[in-house]
Structure formats: structure tokens, C-alpha cells
């Protein structure tokens, strides 16, 4: 007989709300579940409530209402029961000046209660895996912003925690470092469930098993990238330069003006052909592209009243 594999969610949030003492409502009736081994990405504009949600889940902040279960425990009533199995890389967190990568990772593990030998072994393994071994004795003040960020990620990863919260982990990293960090996060899936917040669509596309989009404190969409694509009426879009009348375009598809470009999501194939023909005959530059997560995101967020920079 096949063993029954438990798929009890690692995180279960029900009707979660958070209003800060100054009256600002950061989360409004959010409910979601995160399954074991998932990389769950939280997307949303600035101030949408991503960090607030992560901080509540990571037992750093109390909610105003709702239920939060993490790793099978009540995270509001008994945070001490789950902190052993969690680690976080905070948004904009940065190591101080006169310590090196080894100091940070090793002493952080020891502070979490790990014995010296295990802490040293894990520190070595993690620093090697994250490409920090060669610079382990260099003071963090002398490292680039990207490497400093990687030191913080190494601290969290080395814990071997079952649940990792990465709050905008690749902000400020150059493309090469960003991709290296993605590889690492993708590998983490084997050992942990990861909750990741980001603004970067390519990061989400590269990593996410499922995505939650927050806007004005509400979870307005959730699912896989494929499931979320239903929020956009077509599978392709036509991106045009300036020159065609917007009412004429709006009669043939959904129009989104983004700076000096216009993206049109045509209602059908005939409309697509019409738009391309007219653009060609008027000498307007155009490109046909598949609809991506960014299109979904912009549409969903716009629908829920957020001002989004194009």
C-alpha cells in the first residue's frame, strides 16, 4: 500500500487583518495557504502589505485580527514553538561594518543554539555553496552591496530552517549576482518552503511555484503563473509606438498606455491583424509578444486602484 503523504499546509492564514496604531490599514482580510516545498512569491506595489504579511508570518508582528498557523502551530499564541524552524532575510537588512562573512554566519548559528562543531561545518558548507568562501575573512564594509546581501542570505540558509522568508532578497544585486541567488533559492526547495517577496517579474517567473498578488492590503489574485494569466483577456499583446488613435485601438482590444508605448491586448486574432496592418501602413513601430506575468500584475493591480509606475 502506498504511504499517505501529508499535504498539510506549512502556512495557513485565515481572514488576516492588520491595522497599525497610527490607523494605517496594512492588511485586509487576507486568507492563503502555502504548501510544503513550495516557493511562494508575494507580489505587490510598495505599501501593498507584503512586508507586513511576512513579518506577521515570521512572528515579528502581531495581527489585528485573523488566524495564522505556521508549521502546524498557532503562530499568534505560540511563536516560540516555531521559531526554531524559521529564518528570515529582512528587507533592506544589511550587515554591520567590522565583521566578516564567517563571523556573521558562524555566530548567528551559535546564537540560535547550535553547538560549535555543527555551526562551523554548516558555516563552511554554506559559504562555499554561496560563493563566499574566498572572501570569508574580508570585512563586510569592504564588500559590494550584493555580497553583503548574500552574507545575510547565507545566515538564513545555513540554519537549515524548514521555512524561509526572503523579503526582496535580490534588491540592489547586479544581474549576475541576482541569477546566482535565484539558483540558490531554487535549490532551497529541496530543504525548505520559501516565502519570497519581490517587485521583479523575472524573479517570480524564474522561481515561483505559486504567486499571490497584494494590492492595498488585499490578496487580489493567487495561483500559478498559468492560472493568473486568465486575468488578461488575450494570450498575446501588441506593443506599439506613438501614432495610432487610442479610441480606434480601444475598439479592438484592451489598451494600456505605458510611457511612450501603448500595449494592446486584442479581443481576437482578427483584431490583432487589423492593428498590425494599420501600424505598418502608418509607419508606427510595433512588436507582438506573448502576455507575461508583468501584464497580469499591472492589470490586476490597476483594477484594484493602485497607482502603478509603468
Amino acid at each position: 500500500m502506498e504511504p499517505v503523504i501529508s499535504r498539510e499546509p506549512v502556512i495557513s492564514v485565515t481572514n488576516l487583518s492588520k491595522t497599525y496604531q497610527n490607523g494605517a490599514r496594512a492588511l485586509d482580510d487576507v486568507s492563503l495557504k502555502v504548501q510544503p516545498g513550495e516557493i511562494f512569491c508575494l507580489l505587490g506595489p510598495n505599501g501593498a502589505g507584503k512586508t507586513t504579511l511576512v513579518r506577521i508570518l515570521a512572528t515579528q508582528l502581531l495581527p489585528s485580527a485573523g488566524k495564522v498557523s505556521v508549521l502546524g502551530q498557532d503562530a499568534i499564541a505560540h511563536p516560540e514553538l516555531i521559531r526554531e524552524d524559521m529564518a528570515i532575510v529582512p528587507q533592506e537588512g544589511r550587515p554591520g561594518q567590522d565583521l566578516n562573512a564567517w563571523d556573521y554566519v558562524y555566530w548567528y548559528l551559535r546564537a540560535r543554539g547550535m553547538v560549535a562543531r555543527e555551526a562551523a561545518a554548516r558555516t563552511e558548507a554554506t559559504l562555499k555553496e554561496m560563493g563566499l568562501w574566498e572572501i570569508r575573512r574580508t570585512m563586510t564594509a569592504k564588500l559590494s552591496g550584493g555580497l553583503r546581501r548574500r552574507v545575510l542570505i547565507a545566515m538564513a540558509v545555513a540554519t537549515g530552517a524548514k521555512l524561509l522568508f526572503l523579503d526582496e532578497p535580490t534588491v540592489g544585486l547586479d544581474p549576475e549576482a541576482r541569477v546566482a541567488t535565484w539558483d540558490l533559492i531554487a535549490r532551497l526547495r529541496k530543504q525548505a518552503t520559501v516565502v519570497l517577496t519581490t517587485h521583479l517579474m523575472d524573479e517570480v517567473e524564474a522561481l515561483a511555484d505559486r504567486i499571490g498578488i497584494l494590492a492595498q492590503g488585499r490578496l487580489v489574485a493567487m495561483g500559478t503563473a498559468r492560472e493568473l494569466s486568465r486575468f488578461v483577456p488575450s494570450k498575446t499583446k501588441v506593443v506599439l509606438g506613438e501614432g495610432l488613435e487610442l479610441p480606434w485601438l480601444a475598439a479592438r482590444g484592451e489598451v494600456a498606455v505605458r510611457g511612450r508605448q501603448v500595449a494592446v491586448y486584442p479581443f481576437d486574432e482578427a483584431a490583432t491583424r487589423e492593428i498590425i496592418d494599420r501600424a505598418s501602413s502608418n509607419g508606427v513601430s510595433f512588436a507582438v509578444a506573448a502576455v507575461g506575468l508583468e501584464d497580469v500584475y499591472l492589470r490586476v493591480v490597476k483594477e484594484h486602484g493602485e497607482v502603478v509606475a509603468s
Binding site: 513579518r55 515570521a58 512572528t59 515579528q60 516560540e80 521559531r83 526554531e84 524559521m86 529564518a87 528570515i88 532575510v89 529582512p90 528587507q91 533592506e92 537588512g93 544589511r94 550587515p95 554591520g96 548567528y108 546564537a111 540560535r112 543554539g113 545575510l152 545566515m155 538564513a156 540554519t159 522568508f165
Partner: peptide
């Protein structure tokens, strides 16, 4: 520096 948050989400 937000290092403290890493200690909050830990067994210490």
C-alpha cells in the same frame, strides 16, 4: 540595520 529581525525569527 534590521539584523535584529533575524534574531526575532529565531529560537533565541
Amino acid at each position: 540595520l534590521r539584523i535584529q529581525e533575524m534574531f526575532v525569527t529565531s529560537p533565541i
